[in-house]
Amino acid sequence: MEISVIEFHLDAKSGLSPYLQLVQQVRHALRLGMLREGDQLPTVKEVVAQLAINANTVLKAYRELEHEGLVAARPGVGTFVTATLTDTSLAAHGPLRLELRRWLAKARRAGLDDESIEALFMTTFRTAAEEDIA
């Protein structure tokens, strides 16, 4: 048997349902370039045996990924990555991270502690997202 490219894990305290955690982990791996087009995702049986979770949870996650066009199921063989999330955005990561660091340093100088920084970021992020939708 081929060794799986990625391994899933579940965080009980994340507040996210297990199936969403699986979806996120695949997306994350795609974004970081750990999963590439043509890679096989672990089979349902492997995930179930490893995490001791319900098979429907894995199926649901894979269906969601399929719906998003990221993976495709080949009956009798497995589920394979069909798209990638790295293409253009990965190049932009570096400069963006640099800018964010500068901003963080500025926030510290202004006297914000970790928790305040996080709260500020999250509220701004959420309002911006809502405005986008509107």
Binding site: L10, A12, P18, K45, V48, A49, A52, I53, N54, A55
Partner: peptide
């Protein structure tokens, strides 16, 4: 639980299991 859940995928049967702890059952 790993063994049990793996078997459900392999052999497709229904399971009823009890526990006084939700945490035992939550994922499965």
């Amino acid at each position: 639980m790993q063994g049990l859940m793996e078997a459900t995928v392999e052999h497709e049967f229904s399971v009823v299991l009890s526990s006084h702890l939700v945490s035992d059952l939550e994922r499965v």
